[in-house]
Design a protein around this nucleic acid. Structure first.
Lengths: 207, 207
DNA sequence: TCAGTATTGACCAATGCGGTCAAGAGAATT
DNA sequence: AATTCTCTTGACCGCATTGGTCAATACTGA
């Protein structure tokens, strides 16, 4: 189906993918403009429609492409026997960081798929969403080890605080990253800072 | 300037304001459609342009309207001598909840004003933003009492965790609220739950 | 030189945009 | 009942942009 596109040079593929991701992430399906995409990608109008034969197919291709990539990355890097919530979040953070370097708008894109309600793509999305997204996260954080938590603590709320802290940290990082060349950002520094937060929360909620 | 509009019935004012807020919050200045606004508000096209003579004026009116309302609410309900971070967040939460009931899209709208880069409104926004928004938040949380924090703790990070927890809680609440009639939501229940989070974090980070 | 593929961008009909305005609807005044 | 006045309508305007097409060109390797 998209084999013609996948035979392009990696560089050109990424330019097109990033331009399209950005546009859809920014404006949603309906208001995204294919003209804007080709302009940002530095290709001609005809080429885009040569590879993806219409706007809808392009959109769904992006979705499938990233779900598949996310799945692969997860299965390649996550230790499924690990049940400690902090270590799991740490691994997920590393993974997300790698993907974010390559495709800065992928997470924004995925986030906007949820509330997408354009009738043109909604039915196709519904099937895909149920199949993958919810399941993915539940598999990851469904069987956390609860035994190390302090007695008497409200574990559900503690888990929420941990989640919000990790998300807040990632979100702030994302905002900073937007204004700084990606190459200058050191994964080690970020993980080190994240570990401090982990340690504080571990100290708060673990025995 | 907008006296004609402000003489309308409160109900009609709110319908128009909410429709416009929602549209601008969802799509940003450039992609927001006045046709969509009048459709959602249940008024005719001509009427909107009768009250606000063009799109730009409508947008800036909304901004000014909410900044002013926010300021008034803050000055009416915030105890400026209070320096405890948890009590301050509690008060802000109560305040935000009240506003959110009336104008569910106001905060999304304000949030989208920051990165707004449409050349048509940018110059007008720059002046207003500097004057109000940053200042507002800094005044609120600029002189937190740091003495109750445990010795040896990284206070900056602790404050971040508190902030992310409060934001995360508010965000999740907002998502829930979207699918439930507003009248059924009890402020007391929400504050009670928020107090549990506060207590957990207070116990973690205070002496 | 030539066949075959990759790429271009002017062009199309359709849609939606911000904004206008003559005319209608309703209420108040005479 | 007639008149005046304000509120409100929605068809209409010129224009920009949309998703998508396709004949023409550039590029490639033989």
């Amino acid at each position: 189906m998209f084999s013609k596109f996948l035979n392009l040079s990696k560089d050109k593929q990424d330019r097109i993918i990033n331009a399209a991701l950005r546009e859809f992430a920014l404006k949603g399906y309906q208001n995204a403009s294919t003209n804007e995409i080709v302009k940002q990608a530095g290709i001609s109008k005809g080429l885009l429609f040569h590879y993806f034969n219409n706007k809808k197919d392009l959109y769904l291709f992006l979705f499938d492409y990233f779900i598949e990539m996310l799945m692969e990355e997860i299965h390649a890097h996550i230790d499924w026997d690990q049940r400690d919530i902090f270590i799991k979040y740490r691994n997920v953070a590393i993974l997300k960081f790698g993907l974010f370097q390559k495709y800065p708008n992928a997470f924004e894109f995925i986030k906007r798929v949820y509330p997408e309600d354009s009738s043109e793509v909604k039915p196709d999305l519904e099937n895909r969403k149920k199949e993958f997204l919810n399941k993915g996260y539940k598999d990851l954080f469904g069987d956390i080890d609860l035994t190390p938590f302090k007695e008497g603590i409200d574990i559900e709320k503690a888990v929420n605080i941990i989640y919000w802290t990790m998300e807040g940290f990632a979100y702030r990082l994302q905002a900073q990253t937007a204004s700084v060349p990606v190459s200058q950002i050191q994964l080690e520094d970020i993980i080190a800072e994240l570990d401090v937060y982990s340690e504080m929360l571990r100290h708060s909620f673990y025995q």
